[in-house]
Design a protein around this nucleic acid. Structure first.
Lengths: 212, 212
DNA sequence: TCTTGCGCTGAACACCGTTCAGTGAACACC
DNA sequence: GGTGTTCACTGAACGGTGTTCAGCGCAAGA
């Protein structure tokens, strides 16, 4: 597209290679955007490579020049999901000032995220353990799933105060996490069944875990 | 096989028709047994009709003379799973005598069941919402899933005492259920991640929900 | 202008769930 | 015993899936 790209290419300046890579990256993002939309509409399990390719006006085989396989697409979408979830958590924590209330706010936001983005949540935590494992296997410091986890632990540590050690904070954070996950995934697995509303179950669970 | 069956058949006594039906039922059970074994080994998602047919020495098409489709097999296996789960709950409740301790015991047993039969639990509560919905849509009085649900509610009602109304008991029962489900499904979704052991998380959750 | 490399396609492979015409044997009746 | 019917069962087929790959056309570089 850029007329000067040829001149740059002769000198093998990184910028030109990058332009090619950037174009490739743009297509990749376009594919991912389409995949995300399709997942939100019908769930990731209903997303087929062929339908995805049709949506972005490519042949099915071409998708494999951008992603190793279908699971790789799932993992990328998971990363987007974790990032979105982290944003919800941070926003939830910011609604309060006292440590205990911050943990409460973040926990409630976790549940709200799950109910607001059901198919995303399902992909992240319910579809295939391998996706979540893959993210934590890398264990990059800055991946949003790890940051969300550690945000909860920090909030839990602040809630417990200075006299509590880290394992206690981990225990409290994971307790909140598991409680919210239970309410969310139960609601997603069987929408009509738990009679009590998620909000009330959330309140009851956090009351139990957070009251001293 | 029975030499006298022909004589009975002439008179169309129900017993003969039943013998055919019984044979059919036996084959059905044989298929279900194989399906259950395969599910426990590799999970239900990895179970294909063709592999199942090979395992029971039939052609794939023949399976469809015993089950409407693959989902119907899933639903039957779910029913078996609910029955097994109910047995665990009852056994867990029976380990104590006081109402609160009974609810605790049943809840803990729920979690133990999930961890002891991971693929069964995954099928029941995590794979496809439609399976659980289908069971509750029928709403037969004696189906094991409903009985398990109502067992928890009864135990919760007993725990709260006479002054509590039914919605309160439902709330407590569902809180316990959601809490245990959260711990179980998180453990199954990401085995390596929650650092705190399920037992400790279970204790913390029930302490919070059950202490007055 | 020729060559190289890259993006892309279409066909193919091996699966999948599901359907269905056809087969052979067991049964019911004359 | 002969004959028609029912029944369990098979094998092939259809349309779908994920994935691979030879080959094609075009743009870039020599």
């Amino acid at each position: 597209m850029d007329g000067k790209s040829a001149g740059q290419a002769t000198k093998k300046i990184p910028g030109v290679l990058t332009e090619r890579q950037e174009e490739k990256e743009r297509v990749r993002e376009r594919i991912l955007d389409a995949a995300q939309k399709m997942m939100i509409e019908d769930g990731f399990r209903a997303l087929s490579i062929r339908k995805l390719a049709t949506r972005v006006q490519y042949s099915a085989g071409n998708i494999y020049l951008y992603f190793e396989n279908r699971d790789a697409i799932a993992r990328e979408l998971c990363l987007r999901g974790y990032a979105e979830m982290l944003a919800w958590l941070e926003k939830g924590a910011a609604t309060a000032s006292k440590p205990g209330a911050k943990l409460r706010g973040a926990s409630a936001a976790y549940l709200q995220f799950a109910l607001a983005r059901p198919e995303m949540y399902r992909l992240i935590y319910m579809d295939d353990p391998a996706y979540l494992e893959a993210v934590f296997a890398e264990r990059r410091e800055d991946d949003p799933a790890t940051r969300a986890y550690e945000l909860l632990i920090d909030l839990a540590a602040a809630t417990l105060g200075a006299q509590a050690d880290r394992p206690q904070a981990v225990k409290l954070a994971e307790s909140c996490w598991a409680a919210m996950h239970g309410i969310a995934s139960l609601k997603l697995s069987c929408p009509t069944f738990p009679r009590t509303s998620p909000e009330i179950l959330c309140e009851a669970a956090l009351d139990g875990l957070l009251k001293k």
